[in-house]
Design a protein around this nucleic acid. Structure first.
Length: 290
DNA sequence: CGCTGTGACCGGGCGC
DNA sequence: TGCGCCCGGTCACAG
């Protein structure tokens, strides 16, 4: 499951591999075409697959950046600039290879959905096992309102204050803190893994009502989230199931996780508990987290 | 109008 | 072996 640190790793790998190159050709999977025929929009959103292939042809990739868990390809053709936005969903992955056979893992090779042939002859490949990811071609972010509603980047100087302000709103006050910190409109890029870790580090029960945490502790919690996101970026992200970096390598952060997916608390050895908060499994230590 | 709750999208993996 | 169900990030849409 790619969260912010994993997406950051993908972007850092994509930058030197594709920036400055031109897309000569795009081929989308039969699955994408078939879904469109059935009135669905598998992976490619808000545009007909054949039109997507056509419009992406000849696009020059100027920059690749990350915004929350989204990857922005800043592209340009005939002096006109566009945005090609990707979310990896649960199982999306990018590869830059000479041939599709260079993708070593079969499960990724089996689920290739978009192949961009670059001017160098290399293939920029998007693979997505569960197809929860999305590829979106837009002129500017305003075209897709959810992108405008995202909280500031957690490393942005205003992010903590933004978080505190959101917590004070009636709609968030009475919610479990874990649900609030995982809300992309409150904090950007903090998914289940890092929310679980930060709450454990802080000794806060995931179901604790947001307004039952002092401002001081909220600030400390925000700092804990920011710190763990930073640590994970430096470790190359967490490889829990299907996340791979662009070279097909796993990250190293999963070995440092203390609570996510654990059966016993690493501090007191008590059996962990799990409950569902906001529809997501939330693991915690009943003795260390209150 | 704003907020809340729910469904939809998927296939790997696991339990029975 | 085989089947059915669970999981999850995000958004659309219903209520």
């Amino acid at each position: 499951m790619p969260e912010l640190p994993e997406v950051e790793g993908v972007v850092r790998a994509l930058v030197p591999a594709v920036e400055g190159k031109t897309i000569m050709k795009v081929e989308l999977s039969d699955t994408i075409y078939a879904s469109f025929g059935l009135g669905k929009q598998c992976i490619v959103k808000n545009i007909e697959p054949n039109l997507f292939e056509e419009v992406m042809q000849g696009m020059h990739i100027q920059k690749v950046t990350r915004r929350s868990k989204y990857i922005y390809f800043h592209i340009e053709k005939n002096q006109e600039s566009f945005l090609f936005v990707n979310h990896l969903g649960m199982t999306g992955a990018w590869f830059v290879v000479q041939t599709l056979g260079d993708i070593t893992e079969e499960k990724f090779r089996k689920h290739v959905h978009a192949v961009f042939t670059l001017e160098t002859g290399e293939l920029l490949v998007y693979s997505d096992i569960r197809r929860f990811g999305e590829l979106r071609f837009i002129k500017k972010v305003e075209e897709h309102p959810p992108l405008l509603l995202m909280a500031p980047e957690p490393f942005d100087s205003v992010a903590c204050e933004f978080f505190l302000d959101k917590c004070a709103l009636p709609k968030y006050q009475n919610k479990p803190i874990k649900e609030v910190i995982m809300d992309g409109q409150v904090i950007s890029g903090c998914g289940n893994i890092y929310a679980t870790e930060a709450l454990f580090k802080m000794g806060i029960h995931p179901a604790r009502k947001t307004n039952r945490i002092s401002k001081k502790r909220k600030i400390e919690l925000f700092e804990a989230i920011r710190t763990i996101l930073q640590e994970s970026i430096e470790m190359g992200g967490s490889t829990i199931s299907d996340y791979r970096n662009i070279n097909g390598e796993a990250g190293g952060m999963q070995n440092r996780l203390k609570m996510y997916g654990k059966k016993f608390c690493p501090q007191c050895n008590t059996a962990t508990k799990a409950l569902s908060i906001g529809g997501r499994t939330s693991v915690y230590c009943p003795k260390c987290q209150h």
